[in-house]
Each structure stands twice: as structure tokens, then as C-alpha cells.
Amino acid sequence: MKDILAEIVAYKRTVVAAAKQQRTISDLENAPLFNRSVVSLVNFLQQPQKSGIIAEYKRKSPSRGVINDRNSVEEVTQAYANCGASGLSVLTDDKFFGGSSEDLTKARTLVEIPILRKDFIVDEYQVYEARAIGADVILLIAECLTKEEVLHLSGVAHNLGMEVLLEMHTEAQLDKVSEHVNMVGINNRDLVTFNVDIDRSIALAAKLPADKLKVAESGIDNIDTIVTLRNAGFKGFLMGEYFMKQEDPGKAFNDFVNALAQTTSK
């Protein structure tokens, strides 16, 4: 995966360079959605009546290939929002994940819950772009950014009124947590072996600053796992593939949330 990650990042830099030629930051600042009021994912994840799930719209991935090329972003994200999602995650990478900025903007016109732009952000231009297409939160991936880059990009997001989710997987990345990182996502899946290890993630989460909201990512496909993670202090659970691979992602999400509510109310 490290080679894939390097390939993605190299490609992303060429995409950003081309985008800058088409649209300046000033153009982005004049986009209709740029000055909209941001919705806080941190707040939504702490609302007890919500599921805590950040439901993801994802068509494909480098490791899984095509996951769902049937259900539209409008259909799925609206169903997620209606059925109790605490937030949405929308992939905007085209080449590797089959997403687009337009996917996020389409979702933004239909829902009022927070939206995370899920992409490989390596340049501040992408942060302005995220604001312009309607995102409330950006993802920063510790694996492909230096400590200084995380500090800079999270600062840009903060100045634009956005929140930041920093994703990590190893203890060596803990020092990349900066002041303007609002949430830390622990990726349960090793990006090299693709193995999922919830216990390793729980151990890593215990070493995080207490003031950073914890989000569990990847490999979550059952209610018991969420209960275990909640007991370990996690407030958010990013889930996409489990729902997207079902015939009807919205129904699958609704069924899961109802079962989760029944389990946790006992």
C-alpha cells in the first residue's frame, strides 16, 4: 500500500497543479458555497440521539476494486442522513476511488449534516477547494504528510472555519497531532498488509491527547465492534464499504443503526 499511497500522492500533485491553472484561490473564494456556515462534525458526533457513524459514499478502492457503481450519491447520502448518520464522508478522488468534487456538492444540496471531504490533501489549494465545494471537514493522512505539513494544512482549515480529521495508524505518527486537529482517526486497517486489528487501534487511541475526539476507521462491520470501540473512548465510526457493497446501502445503514440502538439500549 505504501507504493500505492506514493503513486496516489504523486498523481494528486499533478491534479492540483492542473486545477490551479483552471481556477485560482480567488475564484474558489467567490464560489457560492465558500462562505456558507460550516456544520460541526465534532458536535454531531457527541449528540446522543445520533448513531456516531460517519457514513461513507465510495464507488471503488485500489484494494477492493469496484464496490458499488449502481447507487447514486444523491440516493445514498440522503438515505444516510435521514436514518441517523452523524456525518457523511464523500470520496472526491477520481482515478483511484471513482469520486469527484461534484459528488460532494450534490450531497451538500440535499443534507444538513456535516460532510467530510475524503481525499489525499497535500496542498493548501485543496483546503480552499474543499470549502468551495461544500465540505465542513477535511481529512489529513499522517502517512503521507510531514508534521510541518499537517500543522500548516490544519491551520489553513481552521482559518477557513473548517474542522480537521487526522488519520493515523502507528505510534510514530502521534507527534503529528497539532493544535488545529479536531479529531484523530485511527485506521484499523494496516496500509501495508491490509490486516484489520481493532486491539492495536484501541491501544494507540489510549495514547492520544484527551482533548482530541477519537474516530475509528476501516474494517468495522458489526455492532459488537462499535460497542467495544465506544467503551475505549471512540465517539465516531467511519463506515463505508460495509454499506456500499449491499444491494441497497441506505436500507443496510438503516437496519444497522436500528440494531445498534436496540443493542445499546439494553
Rank of each mutant, 00 (worst) to 15 (best):
Q21I: 10
K95P: 04
A132D: 09
D197L: 03
Q21G: 15
G65K: 02
A135V: 06
R200Y: 02
P48D: 07
A261F: 13
S63G: 00
V177N: 03
A81R: 01
G99Y: 04
C83R: 15
P249S: 05
A79S: 10
S63F: 05
V90C: 05
P114T: 14
I67D: 01
T92G: 08
V192C: 04
D119E: 10
F97Q: 00
K214V: 05
L5V: 12
V38L: 09
E167K: 02
Q173P: 12
N71C: 11
E171D: 13
Q78T: 14
D199V: 06
F34C: 03
S61C: 12
A19G: 04
H169R: 10
G98H: 04
T14F: 04
L45R: 08
I138E: 12
D94V: 11
T14N: 12
Q47Y: 09
G219W: 02
V111N: 11
F243H: 08
P209M: 07
Y11L: 04
H180A: 05
S40N: 10
D27E: 05
D175P: 06
N258Y: 13
L153A: 09
P62L: 07
M239K: 00
D199T: 13
P48S: 12
K106R: 15
V177H: 08
M244E: 06
K58Q: 01
A31W: 14
K251Q: 10
Y128W: 11
D69K: 09
R13N: 07
S154I: 05
T105N: 11
T24N: 08
A259H: 15
V42F: 13
L229S: 04
F96A: 02
I4K: 14
A81H: 03
N68P: 09
S201N: 04
Y11C: 00
A85S: 01
L145Q: 01
V90Y: 03
V9H: 06
T193Y: 00
G240L: 10
V90S: 07
K235M: 13
Y80M: 03
N222R: 12
P32A: 06
E179Q: 13
A6P: 01
L104G: 07
S101C: 14
S100R: 07
T105W: 08
D103Y: 09
V215K: 01
A132H: 06
Q262C: 11
D248L: 05
Q246P: 04
V42Q: 15
E7T: 12
D94R: 14
A85T: 04
E149W: 12
T170G: 07
A107N: 06
Y128H: 15
L45P: 09
E171M: 08
E75N: 09
Q126M: 12
P48I: 09
F234S: 00
L238K: 00
V177S: 05
I8Q: 00
G236R: 08
L204Y: 02
L139S: 10
K235A: 14
N182L: 14
Q246W: 13
A132C: 05
I198A: 03
R189Y: 00
D224I: 13
L174W: 14
I220H: 05
G185W: 01
L213A: 03
A157H: 00
T109A: 15
V215D: 00
D94N: 15
